[in-house]
Amino acid sequence: MRTRKEPAKTYRSEVAAAVHEMVEGFHSAGLADKQTMREFDAACLSPAPAMTPEEIRAIRERERVSQPVFARYLNVSKNLVSDWERGVKRPGGPALRLLAIVRRNGLRAIA
């Protein structure tokens, strides 16, 4: 049976990492509910960093894929990838987080 490796979490500080890990333990033991975990995620985890159009293009080119193929991996349209790379639009939310994962670990991390 194949298990999926969770992406590494990036914390605001070492203290935030320690507190978050402790609350995750509480959650696993049934001592903290999902709402509490969501609040600690928001407080402790750092947001995905913004990316320039050049950085997005560099990630795609490093992975040696076309815009349409890159778009399929990210589950977005090829036009959206083009807009990101031209600076017409900026990725946000889940797309930005996926791009950060691909930048750090390559496309294999989300394949």
Rank of each mutant, 00 (worst) to 15 (best):
S28P: 00
L107F: 08
R72L: 14
M1R: 03
A16Y: 03
K9W: 10
M37I: 11
R64M: 09
L96I: 09
L99N: 12
G30I: 11
N75Y: 03
P47N: 10
H27G: 03
E39F: 07
L80T: 14
A17H: 02
T10C: 04
L98K: 15
H27I: 07
R86Y: 07
K89G: 03
I56N: 13
H27P: 02
E54Y: 05
L74D: 08
W84H: 09
T36L: 08
N105D: 15
G92W: 04
I101R: 02
I110A: 10
V19S: 01
V15R: 11
M51V: 06
C44P: 09
A111Y: 03
K9E: 15
F26C: 12
I101A: 11
Q35M: 07
I101C: 05
V102N: 14
I110N: 06
P49G: 12
V102M: 12
L74V: 13
R108G: 15
G92Q: 12
A32N: 05
V15C: 03
L45S: 01
G25N: 04
P53Q: 10
R108M: 05
I110Q: 08
V76L: 13
I101T: 15
P94L: 04
V23T: 06
P49N: 04
I110C: 08
Y11C: 00
I59R: 01
G87K: 02
L98V: 02
P53L: 07
R103F: 02
L96V: 10
A100I: 07
P7V: 00
Q35D: 15
E24F: 01
R104Q: 08
T10D: 04
E54T: 13
A100Q: 15
A16F: 05
V102F: 14
E39T: 04
G106A: 12
L99C: 11
R86I: 04
A18D: 13
R4E: 14
K89L: 12
V102L: 09
A95S: 15
S66F: 03
D41G: 04
K78F: 01
E21F: 07
G87N: 07
K89D: 13
D41K: 01
E54V: 10
A18S: 13
A58G: 10
E6R: 01
A18Y: 02
G87T: 06
S13Y: 03
T10P: 00
M1G: 14
P49W: 01
A32H: 09
S82K: 10
R62Q: 13
R62T: 12
G25E: 07
S77C: 08
E24I: 01
A95Y: 11
R38S: 12
K78I: 00
Q67C: 05
V69E: 11
A29P: 00
A58Y: 06
V65R: 03
V88H: 08
V19Y: 02
R57Q: 14
G25Q: 05
S82N: 12
S13Q: 02
E55T: 14
D41V: 00
S77E: 07
R90P: 00
C44S: 15
N75V: 09
L99F: 14
V76I: 15
S77N: 09
M37T: 01
R97W: 14
R4P: 04
E85C: 06
S66I: 00
P47L: 08
A8L: 02
S46V: 14
P53T: 08
R62A: 08
E39V: 03
N75E: 13
A17K: 00
D41M: 08
R108K: 10
A71V: 05
R60N: 05
V88K: 11
M1Q: 04
P7A: 10
A48D: 11
S28G: 11
W84G: 01
A32V: 05
S13P: 00
